[in-house]
């Protein structure tokens, strides 16, 4: 059973006291989000190959673009004027992009199914669980999944010598932050969707983000106007964050990137929780 053993122990105790009076032990003091994780664990323990597949996407990109294109490009000049091997330049961006893709996929397609077709959340809300438990649990699940992919990818990067600074270890929490920002907003967007056609819009947003967030080349190649536009892309902030850590090019800008992603995740979570209430508790 997933979930923390302490909480389970407490529940045992409570339910055995209450069981004597046969009154169900209510989950009134939080912990609901953990139940949501348990539910997803039950589902995925049977279809775990689906989870593994997510690991390969960034690896494929790394080999094709990082190594293949990298061999043609050689080195690139980054903002502080340093020369960096192209593979080491593009790898952190691929990590950020895959954190985004994973979070968006999990929080849109999967959530939409559970919300509109499976009626999973309707059933859950007949219990002491709250919409907040659902929102937090689902976002946390998506983060957990992202964490596995990110760890694997970072290990591959390390093995290939693409992490040039000890700060690189912070790339892991950074992917979590990116995942949080996109999962929260993805889920919020999903609550507004009515049909599967609406998901074309998701691709319409995610693909340009992937291509134009200073992912494959430095921001400086753009004219000013496009540089400003690029800075509006949430993925740009994620890419800059991870790239700074793995290349060891820290600057005060990092706080700006972090603030952007935290704000995005906070707003997304808030909207999600409110929207679920409106949709499910009407």
């Amino acid at each position: 059973m997933a979930g923390n053993p302490d909480a389970a122990g407490t529940v045992d105790l409570v339910s055995s006291t209450l069981a004597a009076r046969a009154v169900p032990a209510p989950v009134l003091a939080g912990g609901g989000a953990v139940r949501m994780l348990e539910r997803n664990y039950l589902v995925y323990r049977r279809i775990w190959p689906v989870i593994i597949s997510g690991f390969f996407e960034p690896i494929f990109y790394l080999f094709s673009i990082g190594i293949g294109i990298g061999a043609l490009v050689g080195d690139v000049t980054i903002a502080n004027g340093e020369l960096v091997d192209y593979t080491a330049f593009v790898a952190p961006a691929l990590l950020a992009a895959s954190a985004m893709n994973g979070a968006v996929f999990e929080s849109t397609f999967n959530i939409f199914f559970k919300l509109k077709y499976g009626k999973v959340y309707d059933a859950i809300l007949s219990t002491p669980m709250k919409t907040r438990d659902i929102a937090i649990g689902e976002i946390a699940w998506s983060l957990g999944r992202g964490l596995i992919y990110a760890s694997a990818f970072i290990l591959v990067m390390a093995a290939m010598g693409l992490i040039e600074s000890p700060w690189g270890i912070l790339a892991l929490p950074a992917t979590l932050l990116i995942g949080f920002a996109f999962a929260a907003c993805g889920m919020a967007a999903t609550t507004f969707m009515n049909s599967w056609q609406d998901f074309d819009l998701v691709n319409l947003i995610v693909l340009p983000l992937f291509l134009f967030s200073a992912t494959f080349y430095p921001l400086s190649v753009y004219p000013d106007i496009f540089q400003t536009l690029t800075q509006l892309s949430p993925l740009y902030h994620g890419v800059q964050l991870i790239r700074s850590f793995t290349l060891g090019t820290l600057s005060i800008d990092l706080f700006g990137h972090i603030a952007f992603l935290v704000a995005m995740g906070g707003v997304g979570s808030y909207i999600t929780s409110r929207r679920l209430e409106k949709l499910l508790l009407s």
């Binding site: 529940v11 045992d12 032990a25 989950v27 539910r39």
Partner: peptide
């Protein structure tokens, strides 16, 4: 899982 939503232990 429904029992878990109510906070019941697996044994119960």
């Amino acid at each position: 899982i429904y029992g878990r939503y109510f906070g019941l232990s697996k044994n119960v």
